[in-house]
Amino acid sequence: MARVIGGLTTSHIPAIGNAVPREKELVDDPYWKPFFAAYPPARTWLQKVKPDVAVVIYNDHGLNFFLDNLPTFAIGAAAEYRNSDEGWGIPTIPPFQGDPELSWHIIESLVHDEFDITSCQEMFVDHGFTVPMSLFWPNNSYGGIKTVPVCINTVQHPLPSPLRCFKFGQAIGRAIESYPKDLKVVVLGTGGMSHQLDGERAGFINKKFDLLCMDKIVNEPEVLTRYSIHELVRQAGAQGAEFILWLAMRGVLHPKVTKIHSSYHIAVSNTATGLLVLENSVA
């Protein structure tokens, strides 16, 4: 049977996508050093656990989806996923392998479990997906990993609530662990932490709230599922609502997990960055 071996979260800021190819020179740059220095332990853990599949929970920022058709929950079911020009010159990187058979198993299981999702046999993946993949598998060394993109709407309100996203993650966890193939799966939750790009409150960051989230998500995630989206926006900023993607990731894992590594840094671009590596308990 397939097993979820752990979860990782990371911010996915486009500026990181531009910096990643230059990591070797930027690792000593005062601006980038505290950011890049946090990633080697996450990569070491991935090398140790050797996952076969990464389920990537992210948000599309207007590459694949527009307001004409905007799903709340969408899942990729393609053999391959590519990124593309997002309007400001993010690099095009080698394609990501899909796993259509696992994707359809998850889709069927979710709908059976009362989550009515959108399935996508063609899908561009944007920086919300590609930046974390490039960070965790440096030099685009993700070629041997199969991926399942899971996209959650954070563009247009109403967004699904923190509780709904957590339950959605739990349903994905049940789906994966009922898949008959012997696969090791990691789940990524991307985005966050506190940040706001628009309005007179642009530049808002809330360190105290971010640290609370990073602490509680490990073994008391239920505490965080009590927030409304409105309260999450108040506490974490308009785009800090991306934290629902972290909660969906946490839902996929078992109730008890072990924290392997974490890091928090202010700021890259307009955003407080957070990194978390959680190992699943044995079922």
Binding site: G62, L67, W88, V155, L197, A202, G203, S269
Partner: peptide, 23 residues
């Protein structure tokens, strides 16, 4: 919506910090 407006800003090489400063 700022996610789409960012693509407009990109034409002029403006970053989210530039538009944050303006707002």
């Amino acid at each position: 919506c700022v996610y789409y407006l960012a693509k407009f800003a990109g034409i002029f090489g403006l970053t989210v910090q530039d538009i944050g400063a303006q707002q």
